[in-house]
Amino acid sequence: MCDRLSSLPDSLLLDILSFLPTKEVVAASFLSKRWRPLVHYFWTLDIHERHFPGGEVFVQFVDYVLISGDLEFLKNFGLNCCYLEFLKNFGLNCWRWNVPNDMINNWIDVLINSIVEHLEISIAPTFQIELPSSILNWSTIRVLKFKGVTFSSLYSVNLPSLKVLVLDMVRLPDINFLPMLLSGCALLEMLVLTELDNNHYGPMQEIKRLNCLVATDVPASLVPVKVLSNVTFLRLQVRLTLYT
């Protein structure tokens, strides 16, 4: 007897799985190798402002999801469901509405205690959202992508599992933030720094060599080339000043 179910295309299997509670979706991923990758769709929660009519609803929604941990009702929003305990990838995108900074801090506390491995936060820089430094002391996180946020001063960094770090339009508190941040990312493989708001002058601490780094896209003024000596894919942003 042949296995007709497994021969269906991914999109159909995912639609079938979407009728099941998430715990059973996870169980379905143990059926065979064919089913294993499907569960990844359910491990991802990408909360984007486009799903919501207004800022208040957006904030209430994210708060309810993360604080209650009940993600079953996400289906109503056209999002795949997921129990927080299985959540691996989390994304938050809000450029239209201001989200209270203390709520973001609460959410990050929840995420740090979860098994999330991939975190992306993108918020309009005009809201000046300052992320707590606890986000940079997170032993299990593998991918961090931040856009538009501000960091507070650092006292310690411990990101032993971090492989990918992307900072875009991020405001750094002081000149030594970057060297300190990178000193806590021993396994970093990919580093992207674009449009950093880093208008601090003065001597910067030396950035230690990142031995695992294979791909970078960084401003030459911030990261010395010797730090990047192992890199296979390199894009250096060089600012030219022309004198006439």
């Binding site: 007897m1 042949c2 296995d3 007709r4 179910l5 497994s6 169980a27 379905a28 059926l31 065979s32 064919r34 089913w35």
Partner: peptide, 9 residues
């Protein structure tokens, strides 16, 4: 489930 749908482990 494997039995119902003849899914090979």
């Amino acid at each position: 489930i494997r039995k119902i749908f003849h899914i090979k482990n």
